[in-house]
Design a protein around this nucleic acid. Sequence first.
DNA 1: TGTCAATATAAATACGATTTATTTTCTTAT
DNA 2: ATAAGAAAATAAATCGTATTTATATTGACA
Lengths: 252, 252
Amino acid sequence: MRTERTLTESGEEIAGRGKRSVREALLTQLVEQIVSGELAEGSTLPNEADLTDRFNVSRTSLREAMQYLVALGMTRSRTRAGTIILPRENWNYLDPLVLDVMLSIGGDETFYTSLIDARQLLEPAAAAQAATNATARQLSRIAQAYEDMVDANSRDNEEWSRADLDFHTAIINASGNWVYRQFASAIRAALLASFRLTNRASQSHEQALEKHHAVLDAIRMREPQVARAAMETLIGVARAEITDALRLDKCK
Amino acid sequence: MRTERTLTESGEEIAGRGKRSVREALLTQLVEQIVSGELAEGSTLPNEADLTDRFNVSRTSLREAMQYLVALGMTRSRTRAGTIILPRENWNYLDPLVLDVMLSIGGDETFYTSLIDARQLLEPAAAAQAATNATARQLSRIAQAYEDMVDANSRDNEEWSRADLDFHTAIINASGNWVYRQFASAIRAALLASFRLTNRASQSHEQALEKHHAVLDAIRMREPQVARAAMETLIGVARAEITDALRLDKCK
DNA sequence: TGTCAATATAAATACGATTTATTTTCTTAT
DNA sequence: ATAAGAAAATAAATCGTATTTATATTGACA
């Protein structure tokens, strides 16, 4: 077992032990190459023997990484025919690894607009259901996230972002709807995307706190329609920021 | 490599070659045991050596199945500590295998109501966006599905169901929103659930055709708000049927 | 159309390496 | 002397490699 950094034939680097497991590093590379189109939809991957040579990993590590890809809906394997890349419609885009790769590659405009459209649709509905369904424990989770945002105010962008994400995640969990909950990873992606596109944290902190507080209060008071409207306002600002940032991007 | 049916120590059967691969059969069993709670959230799985004995499979097959479970967000492995089952909030419930298991086990009431709530939220929005965004090819896909429903009318429930699912799937694809598209597997689950709970295909065919046609027309005519309203009506009927079926279920 | 060979994945087995959680021991403070 | 915290050692479990055999499937040929 190697202990130093490994370069494959094609110069692709599999991280050494200090950083990432062989399998994880390989998986990330494969996902990157698929998402970027380097390994094109519909195409057939080289066979296992070639891939083990190319990436300089054992057959087992390769096959385990491939199983993860199958679970992502990205590939399908058949004896004799080989392994093909499936169409994008099949992929589990909500998987955190896939979303991370999309973000690092930088999606096209429809990536971001799809995300904000979905947010505008789902999060108000989740807030309304949270106002109806949230348990006391879930409520205090939301409140804690809000307090963390207050604490982080103007001190720490990273802490602010984490608390912001916690707030939104706690609400979608409190909705009690398992389908909405699947969307949680997309919220994280949206917040990261916003940060990257605008080069700053979403919204001015004071205005943001006000809007977050309105959502929290409506949920606490068990007023679904007020919660819905408050969340629509909150996401509306996020939408405007993304739209502006994308417009600026276009002018470059 | 065995050629006959295999019984594990605990009587669990791994399908023979004629039916399912070792890995797939094992994976299905593991997912079933996790979803059913037999392998409880937060608990630690037996170690690899014990699991290979229990299921009577090789280490390779087990490890490949485990990677799929990791991708489903169901387990996490750590050296020395072992492999733990993660909380339900982590699971990729939208994976077709997971949904199939949920359906075969028969979810509780909130499973179905979450599904119909999400449908009521997402599909009208998708129809509206399809009315704006659909390409000619996507339009003809939707139309073809509708024609297939017409052809299947009163002849073939299985064909009708397939066409119904195609119709809804085609619309969500035509929305052009990659987030909405992730919910396609949930729509399939919803339609299957409806069939199972009501013991018949959703809706009377004539009424259903009328409502589907209204959706198709609105999309064709590029009228988003009409498409939205038509889809709301269609899903509203599906909701009423599920609600009735669940109420009947309660009286048993 | 049927048969067969070739291709590629699927599966099993054996062995060793590495990580990391848990336990034990040691040190320091009261 | 005892308790608490830190450091070191141990052990448990996963991770990774290598090799061989089995099986499924496709394409070529008669």
